Computed example of a mutant assay.
Amino acid sequence: MGTEAEEQPHGAAVVADGFGLKGPRGWVFREVSFRAEPGALVAIEGPSGTGRTCLLLALTGRMKAQEGHAEVGGLPLPWKAAAVRRISALGQVPGVNELDPALTVAEHLRERALLQRRFDGSVRALLRRPGTRAAEARARIEEAVAAAGLDLDALPKGGRTSVRDLERIEALRLSIALALIGRPRLLAVDDADLKLSDAARAEVWALLRSLTASGTTVLAVCSEAPEDALRITTVAGEAPEAPETPEAPETHEATGAPEAPGAPEAAETAEAGRTDTGAAASTTEEGADDALAETGRS
């Protein structure tokens, strides 16, 4: 009974204070400060090339930041990055864990369930009978597919449909289902609204809200965040100076130096649900790629 309770999804709080990552060609992102409660929907918005994906990877323990600090589920980054990776999962991230277009939907799901059992399962689970393990794997797949809203019967060839034949929103749902097989406390989704119609975007945000309602904390990279999300906005160019008198409590412009932890203005910003981050002028897509190569993609 205790083991079952531990496997139930429960969100991880995410805290960042002056969080920043620098590559060989400049800052990829910096001065990121926010606090998200367990089960929150956090949207990392901004133009492409402003460090959104790298911030997502750093907060899930896949990249190593050089400035400030962050915690996920009480685990400090970067010192407990391996532990953070165990309680978090990635949807599809280009260049990191892309779907294989040659595999079918069912093959992807079976492979992920097998890997989950092999590398993350307990010793006790590995000693169960093959029939019992197979039934548990099927149950996990069905649970994840249902949570991701992926209707296998609606696909052209059902579970035998190749990934290359999926529509964008179907591929996104599949990547989320694969991530959910591990029952993560933190789910990270890259390009949540890329190349989607307004109706499809609404579907995706409704899906992510349903996951937070079940207790999972969700980080989602997007071009435009919904109003009810905690918004982290990445900005290209020099880090803007802080206004002398903050007129709008909903927005905090990052300065060139990190604020002292617990500053009143930072607290108000977190409660308002919006934080802006500045990226140095030398930040480029190449710099982000270099930083990823240096810190690893595991």
Rank of each mutant, 00 (worst) to 15 (best):
F34P: 08
V96A: 07
S48Q: 06
L56V: 05
E167C: 03
G159K: 05
R86P: 02
Q92W: 02
L155R: 01
A220S: 08
V42Y: 03
T255D: 14
G131E: 11
R118T: 03
R201F: 07
A134D: 13
P38R: 07
L114R: 11
E6N: 04
G11K: 10
A81S: 13
G273C: 04
A102L: 01
L174Y: 08
L196M: 10
L178D: 03
R133D: 10
R128S: 08
D198R: 15
G26R: 11
E238F: 12
K157E: 06
P261Y: 11
T269F: 02
P94S: 12
V123I: 14
A281R: 12
L187R: 00
A192Y: 01
T295F: 08
D120A: 12
I232A: 07
T234S: 10
E107Y: 00
A139S: 12
T284G: 12
G46Q: 00
P261M: 14
A225W: 05
A144H: 04
V28I: 13
N97P: 06
A147C: 09
E268R: 15
A177V: 08
D100I: 09
E238K: 14
P76Q: 13
V32R: 03
T104M: 02
P101M: 09
A248W: 11
L57Y: 04
L127N: 14
R231D: 03
A192Q: 10
A206R: 15
A134Y: 10
G256A: 15
R183P: 06
D190R: 00
S214N: 13
D151W: 00
T3L: 12
A206E: 15
P94H: 05
I181S: 02
K22N: 13
S298K: 09
L207W: 08
A188K: 05
D17A: 15
L230T: 00
D165M: 02
G278F: 02
P258N: 11
T53C: 04
L194M: 07
T212E: 11
R110K: 09
D276V: 08
G73L: 10
T216I: 14
F19M: 07
V15F: 13
T161H: 00
P130R: 12
T245L: 14
L207D: 10
W79R: 15
A146Y: 01
F119G: 11
L103V: 03
A106L: 09
V105D: 05
P78F: 05
P24V: 06
Q116D: 14
E224R: 15
H108E: 05
F29K: 10
G26F: 04
E271F: 01
C222T: 15
T233W: 04
R185V: 05
A40N: 01
E31P: 13
S162D: 06
L186G: 06
T283N: 15
D191L: 05
A248T: 09
E271S: 12
V72I: 12
L187W: 03
G287I: 04
L115I: 06
A263P: 11
V72G: 06
E170G: 06
L77W: 03
R138C: 09
A270Y: 13
R183E: 08
R110S: 10
E136F: 03
H252P: 01
G158W: 07
L90W: 01
A70T: 07
P258C: 12
C54Q: 07
A89M: 01
G49F: 05
A148V: 00
E224H: 13
L57I: 12
D290L: 15
P264T: 07
G68V: 07
D120P: 06
L55R: 02
I169L: 10
L126V: 10
V221W: 09
